[in-house]
């Protein structure tokens, strides 16, 4: 095993134990590991951004074509203005770059949500109902019902009743109640998945510790 890999394994082993010490309770070892992780991860990300994005862009500027050079410099200049956000007096300089980022991001999200989720999923919900077979009818019906009722749960339009209380429409209220059942089942399954992922991470960590110990012990 190369030295760098051995050292990495030892460090990883120790840091894993440090983090696991949190199971006993919060302690300095856990904090040490977490702060170290945040620092390394941030430095790693900064290095990647500077090296792979900004410097790479700067190096790839077409110096021979003024038009393309200007076009290529604009995002870099806008990016540079974002640094002004660190200084309150001139933080307004970064608003232009943020405006471009937000405007493009909003439009991209709109286009993606509309064409990638709303229309296809609505179609899928309807198409799931297959009257030609019982399973298709029941399964598709349940699927459609679940989709509609889940959406109905997030329908918060209501009217004020005669007694002054604000209530949703009775039909919407019933649909919303059914939607809550679907949502509860969905979140239960999601929770099971989260737990499985966490347990898998625990298994992976324990496995790495065991492999390291076995490699140390020569087993």
């Amino acid at each position: 095993m190369p030295l760098i890999e051995f050292v990495s394994a030892i460090v990883g082993f120790v840091l894993t134990l440090m983090v696991f010490s949190y199971l006993i309770g919060d302690n300095p070892l856990f904090r040490f590991a977490v702060y170290l992780f945040v620092g390394v991860a941030s430095g790693y990300a900064a290095a990647v951004i500077v090296n792979d994005i900004l410097l790479a862009r700067l190096q790839s500027l077409p110096l021979g074509d003024p038009a393309l050079l200007v076009i290529g410099l604009i995002p870099l200049l806008l990016a540079a203005t974002l640094l002004a956000k660190l200084f309150p007096r001139i933080s307004w300089l970064g608003n232009f770059a943020m405006a471009v980022l937000v405007g493009v991001g909003a439009a991209t999200a709109i286009g993606g949500a509309l064409t990638g989720t709303l229309i296809p999923q609505a179609e899928a919900a309807v198409d799931a109902v297959d009257p030609r077979s019982l399973t298709g009818l029941v399964g598709g019906g349940v699927m459609l019902l679940g989709t509609v009722t889940t959406l109905a749960y997030f329908q918060f339009g209501a009217k004020r009743a005669a007694d002054g209380t604000v209530k949703r429409n009775a039909a919407v209220e019933a649909l919303a109640w059914v939607g809550r059942v679907f949502i509860a089942v969905t979140l239960g399954v999601v929770f099971a998945g989260v737990y499985t992922a966490a347990l898998t991470a625990l298994i992976e960590r324990l496995n790495s510790l065991i492999l390291f110990l076995k490699s140390i012990l020569g087993l």
């Binding site: 840091l15 894993t16 199971l23 992922a197």
Partner: peptide, 17 residues
């Protein structure tokens, strides 16, 4: 390999308990 992945995975592993 030594810091980022182990610590982050360990933090997630704690979640199992």
């Amino acid at each position: 390999d030594a810091v980022i992945a182990p610590v982050e995975a360990s933090l997630l592993a704690i979640l199992a308990v």
